[in-house]
Write a protein that binds this DNA or RNA. Structure first.
Lengths: 247, 247
DNA sequence: CGGGGCCTTGAGGCAATTCAAATTATGTGG
DNA sequence: CCACATAATTTGAATTGCCTCAAGGCCCCG
């Protein structure tokens, strides 16, 4: 009757395995092989930058807990956030094949990261084709998300754009089995602005409007609370297809 | 003295091999294996859509000649172009692992496409790890380009944005060994608008200004001619890093 | 209790949009 | 090779969504 303690306890990479299984079938043996991967747990504080554009890297990182974003800067110094990662997400798989970083990674709040030697991952992929496939699939889904961001920033007005960002976060959190009614909002208004290609001033006004309309609510700890995700999905013009969550 | 005719003649997939070699080392045997891939040549006319969002596919396509773009549409019906492909580019590698299309592909002008069964590509990757790696690397470079487009659309003004688009096309054409002083401009002003998140009216005005400043010129057949790429690179705030052309 | 983030609000300005119409290319059939 | 239809470019005028600048308020933390 009692659950046995032991190997099946929570492992830092379990969330990563869950994330891969969102899009790929992995045998238990594959999952076990991932758990046996050598890694070091890295605790980063808010705003730390575990990798900067231009760095030559030797490891890949999995976000174990916390939130991290990825950004680039224009010649003029303007920042654009390109992705927001939640626990379980691999945050720089690209560096497995392109070891020179083309973006900077920054912790949104204090986070825990598993650092895995690239060589170990390559070896694992060579030994286990199902894992290699799962990794490519994860890369491709991310790629589809990048494309949706182009669409979001290029063709939607501020209100829809911001709503869409919240929707995406909520849906991805939900898919990962994380609490999603409260979207992680240690995302400052500045960061929302940088993720949507807007100004923090304008973001502020739009948030006010969305609040007035009841689409979002303030919540403890600076979280954004989504009282009715279905309604917000409509405001954000959200279509699930690009996330490839067919499961 | 005379070149021997035979196996070394131009093959439709040679441009693809060149494209892969931009970022990956491929042995001659690998290249030869690619040439032996079964494929059918498809001639498409302007505006044809070889694949639509939602299609379930069984093939992957390589652009042999011509130009193709990839787009998505918002709930409101606005189009955003997400990528522009030139000869040699694989245009839907993502479908190798995610067979349901999340974008629509459309020919900018009449084009020739090589259609390869996904199964054949999978087999080839399994047999030749170097090719599998090269394909993943191609996917990752594309992904970096998508991110640059987010930055472009999100954080640059119209002038810089349009200049950046031309720069990217010119640089990619050049890298592929194609003529690049004349950027392919069967891209209509509507299409430039959809690629940059602007209005065709505004694109028209900016083009006029860029012409007045001598950064671009009109050329036969609706091409845009870039008299001095180095200058345009500055106007577009262009940084090569994201293209990963270290070679 | 003072300083530094972050959020909030107002007023004014501008880049880009919308609407509308004229002009110029492109292509097709007679 | 011209006439006509269609698509693409160009231009103007008015509008607006979002930005800039600037100041004030809140809250956390030392």
């Amino acid at each position: 009757m009692r659950k046995k303690a032991g190997a099946s306890e929570v492992h830092p990479l379990d969330a990563f395995i869950r994330r891969l299984r969102l899009h790929s079938r992995l045998a238990d043996a594959d999952a076990e092989a991932i758990r046996r991967l050598p890694f070091k747990l890295l605790q980063t504080r808010q705003n730390a930058q575990p990798v900067r554009e231009g760095d030559l890297t030797s490891h890949c990182m999995i976000l174990v807990s916390g939130y991290i974003h990825r950004f680039r800067i224009t010649e003029g110094g303007d920042r654009q956030i390109l992705a927001i990662y939640v626990s379980g997400d691999p945050i720089d798989l690209d560096r497995l094949y392109l070891p020179v970083a083309d973006d900077t990674l920054q912790a949104i709040r204090e986070s825990a990261i598993a650092r895995i030697p690239q060589q170990s991952l390559h070896d694992l992929c060579a030994a286990r084709p199902a894992i290699a496939d799962a990794i490519v699939r994860a890369v491709l889904v991310d790629s589809s998300v990048f494309r949706e961001w182009i669409l979001n920033v290029g063709r939607r007005d501020a209100r829809t754009r911001i709503a869409h960002l919240f929707c995406e976060l909520a849906v991805r959190l939900k898919a990962q089995g994380l609490p999603f009614e409260h979207v992680p909002m240690p995302l400052t208004q500045d960061q929302i602005a940088d993720a949507t290609g807007l100004t923090s001033v304008h973001v502020n006004r739009i948030l006010k409007a969305l609040r007035a309309e009841g689409h979002i609510e303030r919540s403890a700890g600076g979280l954004v609370c989504v009282p009715d995700l279905d309604k917000l999905l409509i405001v954000g013009g959200f279509d699930f297809r690009y996330l490839h969550l067919d499961g």
